Simulated assay, not measured.
Amino acid sequence: MRGRDVPALVSGREPYDPQAWFGRRAPLVLEIGSGMGETTAALAAAAPEVDHLAVEVYEPGLAQLLMRAAEAGLTNLQLLRGDAVELLCACVPPDSLDGIRIFFPDPWPKRRHHKRRLVQPAFVALAASRLRPGAPLHMATDWADYADQMRAVCDAEPLLRNTADTPDGWTPRPGWRPMTKFEQRARSEGRDVRDLIYVRV
């Protein structure tokens, strides 16, 4: 396994070809912002029948994930360094992903920086178009106002449907999503973690 650069894929210097990378045809899940790789490696290990793409701009995080994957002998994980929006726009075909995960994206907490947040209407429309019908978009954040923004934006996207069957519209924390040190710290500091799972209609 090796990492690939999104700019090389976007420019066409290297083909975007997950089937060739993994050597098989299998369900394909994209994780945007894999951080230090704890969750990504654990989820890939727990679902060997699923191929996982992890896209991240933070090189030390990718290095950590690469080590975790090597130690676990994972063959169903590929790492991509670069911008996820560029990857989705230029490389990922419509209706081709079996899931997108966005766990604890940068909250840009200052109000003047909110426009830098990833989950905005244009991005959600793009992400939804790359999902197969029935495939999930799963997000989690420990920032209450960002959670509200995520839900408002996704509720307004006609290609997505909220799967929550709770009165408040939030998805109970799935037991299969690993608890990272980051999430533990957020909870210890009194920040509630919100999960949202939408599916492509």
Rank of each mutant, 00 (worst) to 15 (best):
G169N: 11
S96R: 10
F182V: 01
G190T: 00
C154G: 03
V50C: 00
F104S: 00
D148F: 14
A69H: 07
W21C: 06
Q64S: 15
G82Q: 13
F103V: 07
K181N: 09
S11F: 09
E14F: 03
G12T: 08
D192V: 12
R101A: 06
D168P: 01
A152G: 15
A46L: 03
H114N: 03
W176N: 13
R200D: 07
A42K: 10
S34R: 11
D98I: 10
K110F: 04
A135Y: 02
A152T: 15
E38K: 05
H52G: 07
E86S: 13
L88I: 04
L118G: 08
M67C: 13
A45Y: 03
R4Q: 08
L53E: 12
E71F: 14
G12Q: 09
D5H: 12
A122E: 15
T39K: 15
D51A: 10
L137R: 05
L118H: 07
Q19T: 14
G3Q: 11
F123S: 08
Q64D: 15
R68I: 02
A42H: 04
E189D: 12
Q120N: 13
D95Y: 12
I100L: 15
P60H: 08
A164M: 07
A125W: 01
R130C: 00
F182T: 01
P15F: 01
L74C: 08
P105N: 04
L28Q: 11
V92Q: 04
R161F: 03
M179E: 14
P178V: 11
A152I: 15
E49K: 00
Q19C: 14
A156P: 06
A147C: 09
T166K: 06
R161N: 09
S96H: 10
D148P: 10
S11V: 04
Q64R: 15
L159M: 09
L160F: 07
R112W: 00
L65Q: 07
P167D: 14
V199K: 01
L65A: 08
P167Q: 07
F103C: 06
P18Y: 05
T180H: 10
H113E: 05
E56W: 08
Q64G: 15
F22D: 09
K115P: 08
P60C: 07
D192Q: 13
A8T: 13
W170M: 14
R132W: 06
D145A: 12
E183L: 03
P94S: 13
E86M: 09
R101P: 02
P172S: 14
T40P: 08
R185H: 06
L30C: 06
R81K: 12
P15W: 01
V10M: 03
R101E: 14
L66I: 06
G12E: 06
